[in-house]
Design a protein around this nucleic acid. Structure first.
Lengths: 327, 327
DNA sequence: TTGTATGCGTTATCAG
DNA sequence: CTGATAACGCATACAA
């Protein structure tokens, strides 16, 4: 159906190698006589030739494709980061294949399997698993790899926010507001970010109630319902989805609880709830991923070290009003 | 490096064909003697054999992969829909390759090009372009295709919400609240959804101010700033991102404007702004995409017709309070 | 400057 | 039941 090198070779009375060389462009093409070169190029555009990337990949073992496997693309956090990474990678000549494990460890394994069989050039992974060994059971150690958001012990190429610092500034802000007791709504403890955040909060406050479940709105909703009897002064959620669930469950309440949360809460400054948010630097996270991946893709043996970025605390007006202090 | 059929054949004193047949499984495998079958299978697992999908695809012209090319994966609307489609497709044995054109027509063309060269089995597209011809210039007419969210004239396989109805119920709700004049913050008019929504609103209300720009928060912010001099009673935004920008720019205002918007606004019921939202049915949109794609993938020549889903209007408490009426 | 031949790892055809 | 062997479309080492 679609024309191949052979078709063009026939059409132009040349051989496949000549055609291949011409269409390869660059230095190789210039070693071909101008006449045949023009003739071939002409035929190529006339016949609407498009190289078959599958065949090319099989031959060269390069696909110019990087995969990003995230834990939940439905989460705007990963959507935005995916968007940023895609743009950056695109500027460097790679296309991005975005996959979604949906917080399901089995799907993660499957995708890792499939991806490694598909000759991707590199992988950026937001892992569900926590063991280096388990990971390298599925993919080659040779595959250019960057771990995003959830560091794995022993893997140097990783980009994440400093969870201790992020949780620290959140706690600082709450403490300065005189808060002593919190209810904790946490994501699964097997995910390092959720666990660490929860640990630190628990370390610095009196945790009067604690909930754990999938990092989805639903968990936040259910937690809030159970809290309704004795509403705590503060609810800390280990990510934005959980907080979203909590917030959506809050009807009109005279004195709503303070919400402490990680990652962005949309329109938070307008919400009539006091909110403290520990925000990650998304553009920087994305750019660092690319920075760590590119040298690996180029086969450069540069020394790579984990990148750990600081977060910043942001409060909204309702919080500032209640606690008489500025951002 | 990684073992191939040849390696296994050597190891088991058989031929590639035998190995291939055994590993193919099913009816083909059962035509092989139990002894050799076991021997081969054993060797395969022992050597950690993984079929090379690139080679297989080159040979069979099937990749078991569907691509979803969206206009902006940073928009939670598409993130959620991507997540839903991925899950559904996964159940049917396909993996999803999610690509992002970032509302950039050139990137869309590039991705279409690359995807069609990559032997994907099917494509779900949220198009930026509006011409059937332009599209089929890049991809084959034979490629199983579903157009999502922004129908293209002449393409039957398409899933979208009924923009007229969606805009209609939004206008109805505003009208019932006694609203006569609106400011309009619209996305690019070359995108059918934005244009149609804007048209209908303009048809039913007195548009006192009008802004147009990329469907990003920034456009909403800028529009709001320009409106500050003479704040209208109502601002209608043609999507959630624009509204997000508007909302984030609203500081404490005595009597904030009513916001009319399409798609979900997070935590809207708590916001101290009267909001009317015309919401699409995301899970249904996603499922319909898959429903329209699957028969095409299977090569069934069923009759396919555009699916147009209804939207529903939702108001928040602030709106209900101001206008004395329930949802 | 150009052509021939080989291989990438599979599947599929055709013998035996 | 099994084994050669020919594609799939491309890139490339080696000849000429």
């Amino acid at each position: 159906m679609a024309p191949t090198l052979v078709d063009i070779a026939k059409q132009t009375q040349t051989s496949v190698s000549t055609v291949s060389r011409v269409l390869a462009g660059g230095a190789v093409a210039r070693r071909i006589s101008k006449e045949t070169r023009d003739r071939v190029q002409d035929a190529a555009v006339r016949m609407g030739y498009r190289p078959n990337l599958v065949a090319r990949t099989l031959r060269t073992r390069r696909s110019n494709t990087v995969a990003l496997l995230v834990s939940d693309i439905g989460n705007p956090f990963f959507g935005q980061i995916g968007s940023l990474i895609e743009q950056s990678l695109h500027r460097h000549g790679y296309s991005l294949m975005l996959c979604n494990s949906g917080e399901d460890p089995e799907r993660e394994l499957e995708y890792l399997q499939v991806l490694s069989q598909k000759a991707i050039d590199g992988l950026i992974l937001v892992p569900l698993m926590r063991q280096k060994r388990q990971l390298f059971q599925r993919i080659s150690e040779k595959l250019p790899l960057v771990i995003l958001d959830r560091p794995i012990a022993g893997i140097e190429a990783s980009v994440s926010s400093d969870q201790d610092q992020a949780a620290g500034i959140l706690c600082d802000t709450l403490e300065r507001a005189g808060i002593k007791k919190v209810a904790l709504v946490a994501g699964p403890r097997h995910i390092i970010t959720h666990r660490r955040r929860a640990e630190i909060v628990a370390q610095r406050f009196d945790v009067v109630a604690r909930f754990e479940g999938p990092a989805q709105k639903e968990t936040g909703r259910q937690a809030f319902i159970k809290l309704l009897g004795a509403l705590p002064e503060t609810i800390v959620c280990t990510n934005n989805f959980l907080a979203q669930g909590v917030i959506e469950s809050i009807a009109q309440i005279d004195r709503p609880p303070v919400i402490g949360v990680f990652d962005e809460v949309p329109a938070m400054h307008l919400l009539p709830l006091p909110i403290v948010c520990s925000m990650q630097d998304l553009p920087m996270l994305a750019e660092c991923c690319v920075t760590q991946l590119l040298p690996q893709l180029r086969g450069e043996m540069v020394r790579i070290e984990p990148i750990v970025l600081p977060a910043r605390a942001v409060t909204n007006q309702a919080f500032q009003l209640r606690h008489f202090q500025a951002t």
